[in-house]
Write a protein that binds this DNA or RNA. Structure first.
Lengths: 146, 146
DNA sequence: CGGCATCCTTTATGATACTG
DNA sequence: CAGTATCATAAAGGATGCCG
């Protein structure tokens, strides 16, 4: 686990910021944040949505291309996920010359606002693999060595 | 939707970076990233985990305090979630003087590595509420006005 | 090709009750 | 207080087949 200095600072801020109140009030104080987290997760979690979005970040894909790209997804789940994403305005469905035979999907501008989140998800996942491989001890040594 | 200049730059980078390859190869190229995203989501999604973590960021809580803090969670789900989180080394379970009557949970150092993710989840959720309220048109005007 | 309909299995969650 | 056990239900996911 190598954390960038900014992230370490971010974490330190989080750790040091303490509200001097009983738990119940702390909870109250963070209601909105917790709700926001839930809102986001409701949209992106649940199956494959985030992977689909991550794929679409990089190119426009057709239905079957996504299907092949995410090998263990089924047509039904993909279909449902895409429908949700389109409804949430994150993804744009393009049926070329009205033929249902040639449909492609791409991220909307709004969809691209998820980029920072995608980056964090990716980073953490990559780090986590490392963490699992190296064992929990690895981050013990001094991080200041040049 | 107001996006910070850095985020806008980030998004631009993402949008402009294109691999000039057929979709199948793009997919191949991103396999590892997609896997990482999935890994992360496997750990944090599924129920209430992220909210629990977000709560624990701010203080040490006892079981019943979390239960009250997340009003619609049930003891069973909380119990399972905590067990998973402890197993993934994100949360530390503290049973004071071995009495099962007084147990508290807090984030581990490793758990704190989720902070950047929590921030992004929160940000996006907050923005999304705004987006839903203002309608999708709001981000149309020039972002450079001082 | 891009799906939807159907059926079936698996998982997750809820309600309720109970224990050390 | 901090859970576990049990039962019941809902929701998600897979398999298969069909259609425009």
């Amino acid at each position: 686990m190598k954390l960038s200095p900014e992230v370490q600072a971010q974490i330190q801020t989080f750790k040091q910021y303490r509200i001097d109140k009983p738990p119940a009030e702390i909870v109250l104080h963070y209601q909105k944040e917790l709700q926001a987290i839930q809102d986001t997760l409701d949209i992106i979690s649940g199956g494959w949505k985030m992977q689909i979005i991550a794929l679409l970040c990089n190119s426009e894909f057709r239905f079957s291309e996504i299907e092949k790209g995410l090998p263990s997804i089924t047509a039904k789940v993909l279909s449902n996920s895409l429908k949700d994403l389109v409804q949430n305005k994150l993804v744009i469905r393009n049926s070329q010359n009205n033929s249902e035979r040639k449909v492609s999907y791409k991220l909307s501008d709004y969809g691209y606002t998820l980029v920072p989140l995608i980056i964090e998800l990716t980073n953490w996942g990559v780090n986590h693999r490392e963490y699992l491989r190296n064992g929990p001890i690895a981050q013990k040594h001094d991080s200041k060595s040049p």
